[in-house]
Design a protein around this nucleic acid. Structure first.
Lengths: 129, 129
DNA sequence: CGGGATCCTCTATGATACTG
DNA sequence: CAGTATCATAGAGGATCCCG
């Protein structure tokens, strides 16, 4: 997550907006936002089960990134064993909703994309030897 | 227990929807869709200049991925030197528009995110030794 | 239970050179 | 001009162990 200040890197790919976009569209960011949008609040291990396949490291790391960006609220209750709740901030809900719209479009159009891929693969198939 | 709103195959990070989502939100995919949404049609080298900082390899690779998904139309005119035009398909325009909406939200809320980061970093600053 | 610290693997991306 | 092929590398992500 490096923010370059080099003049040579003045391109669209490394601007601050792009970094934030990467956070909310990252492999696990998308899924965490979706789960939290639906669930209001959830504990660490519940999130892990809900997302499925995410490692503890990536869950902690992604949650920290989203918390730092102000999209996720972390509430730790000082009890033993620890109890930590995660939820979306109002700002986070805005992003989650927008990402969710994109996700829905993806699902809605997936059949057409699959067809397109089949046509592409057929057209570009290796000529029979 | 499954989260109700989420279709079953969205819970996995490697489901087909997720692959398509990765394509349209990839580092260069977002930028190419944005540029093509604005330009209608563009040549390979024009795209390279418009995006800025992308290597030939990644440009070719990303364009091929989007073409295979049916989002980008590639038209090669058999002349010398080669002349190839890229444009969005109607399907591609749907995705580009949706991704663009997300990009606009990111830019609109970036100041708040930056503030949130500063608050986070201040709060979590190392205590003076 | 909710992480941190380490180590390690693999993938995305870049640099460079070549070609029809 | 519009790519392809090859090699190299940073960093994302996973596995494992540990701790309050």
């Amino acid at each position: 997550m490096q923010v370059s200040v080099l003049p040579a890197d003045v391109n669209l790919a490394n601007c601050p907006s792009r970094v934030l976009l990467d956070h909310v569209t990252s492999r696990w960011g998308v899924l965490l936002l979706a789960v939290l949008l639906d669930a209001e609040r959830m504990r660490f291990s519940a999130l892990r089960r809900a997302v499925g396949g995410i490692s503890e490291k990536m869950l902690a790391q992604t949650l920290q990134t989203l918390e730092r960006d102000g999209l996720v609220l972390r509430e730790a209750r000082p009890v033993i064993p620890p109890h930590v709740d995660y939820s979306l901030t109002p700002l986070g809900r805005e992003f989650a909703a927008q990402v969710w719209e994109l996700t829905r479009l993806v699902e809605r159009r997936l059949p057409r994309v699959v067809e397109a891929r089949e046509r592409y693969d057929t057209r570009n198939a290796e000529p029979s030897p």
